[in-house]
């Protein structure tokens, strides 16, 4: 097949003429810019890119991208995106969603899209709060968190998006801080390369209703000591001094210091994102010290589209029906004269 050369884009090619209307200081600006920078690196044509969103602050995202886009209804973006991708598998389809949109009202679509492994990218802006409705607790809000709808403290234990996703069969899961555009850009590019449903959770600060919700992990001063940015094939080492690492102690992950108690770099676990077995990925997702960021799981598996294509090709090959007339006049027909 002839491949046409893809125009060399810059981030400006992906910015629409619409004025961005998020609150000043919101991490959403970082995410938008990171996406606009990542897209030219992906080797996809601009006209083949589609952003589908639900409802919420994050879901205004498509309006700001100069690509095809649809601002859908609350929670349903994964279902809409599934239809787009099944209709035209050549498209690069992105779901933009938030913690309320994907884990509360859209929870059902979220788990099923992951189960099917259709080739989509889902960017989940997790700020542990409902922003657009002005500050109610969300399914990722912490127990005890005081919000407009939990003035005495939230009594509903949260979901961990990563745990839920892996439980639902996610083949690709990455997590990244909302204030680290470089890593975010890399992860967006990797998620596009991945064949299957790629879920990226962004720890996104809401400056108005939940300011500082991730500061303990994402603040520049503590980031290197509190976050471990994992990369496939590399030892899981973190810390300002690069002296901390993860080892398996029985069935638990344990933080050790290289050079103490005889621990050497060789003892540190090497990250295997491509393992089909998600057990260790689940343990990484659950860890709160250090908080794991980067691509935690990236297991190459057959996609829904591939399964459908194979089946369709086989049915077409074996079928005697080429046109509807072949069907309509098949089987038990009779003549009236």
């Amino acid at each position: 097949m002839e491949t046409t050369a893809i125009k060399q884009y810059t981030f400006k090619d992906f910015a629409s003429d619409q004025e961005v209307r998020w609150c000043p200081g919101c991490d959403d600006y970082v995410i938008l810019r990171s996406m606009q920078k990542a897209l030219p690196e992906m080797g996809v044509k601009k006209e083949d890119v589609v952003f589908i969103s639900g409802i919420g602050c994050s879901s205004r995202f498509p309006y700001y991208m100069d690509t095809y886009g649809m601002h859908g209804i609350h929670g349903r973006a994964p279902a809409i995106a599934t239809g787009v991708k099944l209709a035209n598998p050549n498209l690069s389809v992105w779901v933009i969603t938030g913690d309320g949109d994907s884990l509360a009202i859209g929870g059902n679509h979220f788990i099923h899209v992951l189960r099917r492994n259709i080739d989509l990218n889902i960017i989940l802006f997790n700020n542990e709060i409902y922003g657009l409705t002005k500050g109610q607790f969300s399914p990722t809000s912490l127990v005890g968190q005081k919000t407009k709808s939990s003035p005495y403290g939230n009594t509903q234990p949260p979901f961990s998006p990563g745990e839920l996703a892996l439980g639902a069969g996610a083949r690709f899961f990455a997590r990244v801080g909302g204030n680290t555009p470089k890593e975010m850009t890399t992860i967006f590019i990797e998620s596009e390369k991945f064949k299957g449903t790629a879920l990226v959770e962004i720890l996104q600060n809401c400056v108005i209703f939940n300011d500082g919700c991730f500061t303990q992990y994402t603040d520049k001063a503590v980031r290197e000591d509190k976050q471990l940015y994992v990369e496939h094939g590399k030892p899981m080492i973190f810390g300002k001094e690069r002296d901390k690492g993860l080892v398996l102690n029985k069935l638990k992950l344990e933080v050790v210091t290289i050079g103490e108690n005889g621990v050497t770099q060789e003892d540190i676990l090497v990250h295997d994102a491509k393992d089909s077995d998600p057990t260790l990925h689940q343990m990484l997702v659950r860890l709160d010290y250090p908080l794991i960021t980067g691509i935690i799981r990236s297991f190459d598996d057959i996609t829904l589209g591939e399964r459908e294509d194979d089946l369709t090709a086989a049915v077409k090959f074996n079928s005697k029906f080429k046109k509807t007339n072949d069907l309509f006049f098949s089987g038990e027909t009779y003549e009236v004269k």
Partner: peptide, 15 residues
Amino acid sequence: IAGISSAIGAAFAGD
């Protein structure tokens, strides 16, 4: 809901 939503996606994409 996913039934109709997927159909909306497909209509957007030209089916």
